[in-house]
Design a protein around this nucleic acid. Structure first.
Lengths: 230, 230
DNA sequence: CGCCTAATTGAACCCTCTCAAGGCCAGTGG
DNA sequence: CCACTGGCCTTGAGAGGGTTCAATTAGGCG
């Protein structure tokens, strides 16, 4: 486990400053909830290591995973004004968190207006993930959805420098993938088999390897070159 | 056509101040694009009157509507830092816009840190709409999706004081509803017929009337009382 | 080794799509 | 005033992608 940067770490030292605001760290076991829908929390978490998911539950025990979170991501939302969460957040693996006091964070930021844009950029990136997922679920086939999601996760882990020899450690169960993409775990299984058979990727024993990135990108409707992320 | 409040108009006068920043107004005809995916704009719009949709296109001519916008909503995103839009924005009806200069708005806000929280609250509300839609498309049946969307729109128009005798003027084609919910216009037609037959709502000649709000709410999995919005 | 959770596979079903024809309505032009 | 047009909605029939149910296999872990 290594120390991960906060998202807005870029070219200046504001990330460092923010990091110094942290109250401490905390370990949370897999399957534990960090936030429950409807609750208000005066702490803010960012993820140090491990995987986490934001999700909404529907009456009959079903759930929809809204977003997967990993190293450096802030867990909840809105960050500054503590309001009842509109979703739950659950640890998918054992997780190490960075803990902030919401008020301290809010005070710090309101004294540094330049950070607004950074905050806004972060949020709009989050927003974009949600919108891309909407396009996925609304308009793409199971094959395309799964390929795109795996590529997205792979890309994010890659950026964090967490790949080992081009292999991503993927703690997601097929159930989780299905819950994120509006599919059944059964159908995720079948579709993954198809992707493997086509030689696009390998996923076995929680290890994901992208075999043919270009072909996946074209399958998904992205330009084949490296123009755009995900 | 009446003057609509900006979203963050609440209890103080910051909304007034922001409104004074506006550069002017502009009229845009139905079907025109206000923003195109990938473009950068130095103007920011909020909606004065009319309906607008954010959408993403997929290669083969399909599109997914991400969000419907109406009176007081800001059109694009991120608001302050002009970046390439990750979606297009199209007018669904003739629209009257409030035009701001992005830089003026950004400067104004960075001098008033208290507005950060307001900005963040707005965005997190937007985020919530996206997340609710994800739950819809991912886990709910066509019947539930359509009922919920129409209730959401009805509720928003109600808040804006735009209902006339409990009737909402709904400029959406069934195609639009389908594009927002991941359905075909054909199936939207059939499902609407079912909702009408069940006596839940009326939708005819662009006029929507909610007949049995409580039953729709329970169909959709919301508490039957008025506890929560949408 | 045994237990438990996750993944795979098969078969039947169903919700939603596709394709296609017809109807309604508003606008337009003769 | 009426025929024509184009856009949208409706309706039918058939097909398909994904689900459901259920049984089996594979994997981790004490």
């Amino acid at each position: 486990m290594r120390t991960l940067a906060l998202y807005w770490e870029n070219d200046d030292d504001s990330a460092d400053a923010i990091r110094r605001l942290r109250k401490g760290t905390r370990d949370v076991g897999a399957k534990r909830f960090l936030v429950r829908e409807g609750e208000v929390q005066d702490e803010v978490y960012s993820i140090y290591s491990g995987w986490v998911a934001r999700m909404k539950a529907i009456g009959d025990g079903q759930r929809e995973i809204l977003q997967f979170l990993m190293g450096g991501d802030f867990v909840d939302f809105p960050l500054l004004s503590g309001r009842a969460a509109s979703y739950s957040v659950q640890a998918l693996t054992d997780v190490q968190l960075c803990v902030f006091d919401r008020k301290v964070l809010a005070d710090y930021m309101s004294e540094r207006p330049a950070l607004i844009q950074r905050l806004e950029r972060w949020i709009s990136m989050e927003m974009n993930y949600a919108y891309v997922r909407l396009l996925d679920i609304g308009r793409r086939s199971a094959l395309e959805r799964i390929a795109r999601l795996l590529l997205e996760l792979y890309r994010r882990q890659e950026r964090l420098g967490l790949l080992v020899d081009g292999v991503m450690s993927c703690p997601l169960r097929q159930q989780d993938i299905g819950d994120a993409l509006g599919l059944t775990s059964v159908h995720v299984s079948r579709t993954l088999a198809e992707l493997k058979a086509d030689g696009l990727l390998e996923l076995h024993a929680s290890e994901l390897r992208i075999l043919d990135r270009a072909r996946i990108r074209s399958l998904v409707g992205l330009p084949t070159d490296q123009a755009m992320p995900e």
